[in-house]
């Protein structure tokens, strides 16, 4: 396996893809801890569909995809946040509507102009080849910013994740942190989308934390485990993708399924042993 990894690292575009992907996977898994525990996982899914629509339009209009998709996704994330907080409209149904709508608009725009070409296919299912050198630099910088902000806001993110009403009552501006969380998640989703594909990017947010929660019991240990699971899952997934010439996104998700099952079994055994 080390040999395969060495072979992979001899291709510059793969080194680029691995660096960006690893950083994005770390961002997604860390933000995922808050998103999943706050019951916001659907937002990640919604964002990826909106991101697909934005990327499709950008490729038709001829703007650099990231420059359009990132602001559009941030705007959409605020909307999604409002929807999930609102008690009047059914939040989950509204999110499903928005994401299906954005996906449909993206498909329509593309099929009426350039046709369903490989670009669109790549956006749906992900491809590591779609990452240009300029995109890679921007992705590395942005995901670095996301990671730093996550660490700096860690205690506050814990507080608003665990108990929003308590935090609000003691004067913590929870709306600001929710908005920050949504913004960081949007950036992460857009950055990871072309590698993972619009249909699979939300798995980077959801899988690692759920896997980590099978074993971790404290917030810090779940956070760290989640990051480790994401990194291991990503690298193993890329190796599988390289060896079997499979799409990177699907390979990573499949490795994550295996990791989840392993952790679930370990957790169940441990619980059974400690109960005795």
């Amino acid at each position: 396996m080390i040999g395969v990894l060495q072979e992979m690292l001899s291709y510059p575009f793969l080194v680029r893809a691995l660096t960006v992907g690893l950083l994005v996977a770390l961002c997604a898994s860390l933000l995922g801890v808050s998103l999943v525990l706050k019951r916001f996982s659907m937002i990640g899914d919604g964002l990826s569909h909106v991101g697909f629509g934005a990327l499709a339009i950008a490729s038709v209009v001829g703007i650099a995809p990231l420059y359009l998709a990132i602001p559009v996704c941030i705007a959409a994330s605020f909307l999604l946040l409002r929807m999930s907080e609102s008690t009047r409209i059914k939040g989950d149904a509204a999110i499903a509507m928005l994401s299906a709508g954005a996906l449909a608009i993206g498909v329509m725009v593309v099929s009426m102009t350039t046709g369903m070409n490989t670009d669109v296919y790549n956006y749906m299912f992900g491809s590591i080849l779609s990452l240009s050198a300029a995109d890679a630099t921007l992705s590395i910088v942005l995901s670095g910013v996301v990671l730093v902000l996550f660490v700096l806001f860690y205690p506050r993110l814990f507080a608003v994740t665990f108990d929003e009403s308590f935090s609000r009552a003691t004067g913590i501006p929870t709306r600001v942190y929710n908005a920050a969380l949504a913004t960081l998640a949007s950036v992460t989703v857009v950055l990871g989308m072309r590698m993972m594909g619009a249909l699979l990017i939300s798995s980077l947010i959801i899988f690692p934390v759920l896997t980590a929660m099978r074993i971790g019991k404290r917030y810090l240990s779940v956070t760290i485990l989640s990051a480790v699971v994401a990194a291991v899952g990503f690298i193993l997934g890329m190796i599988v993708s390289y060896v079997y010439e499979a799409p990177s996104g699907a390979s990573i998700v499949c490795v994550n399924i295996v990791l989840f099952l392993l952790f679930a079994i370990t957790g169940a055994i441990r619980n059974a042993v400690t109960k005795k």
Partner: peptide, 10 residues
């Protein structure tokens, strides 16, 4: 997932 200490600290 949180320890008592993490909760109280918040």
């Amino acid at each position: 997932p949180a320890s008592v200490q993490e909760v109280v600290l918040s």
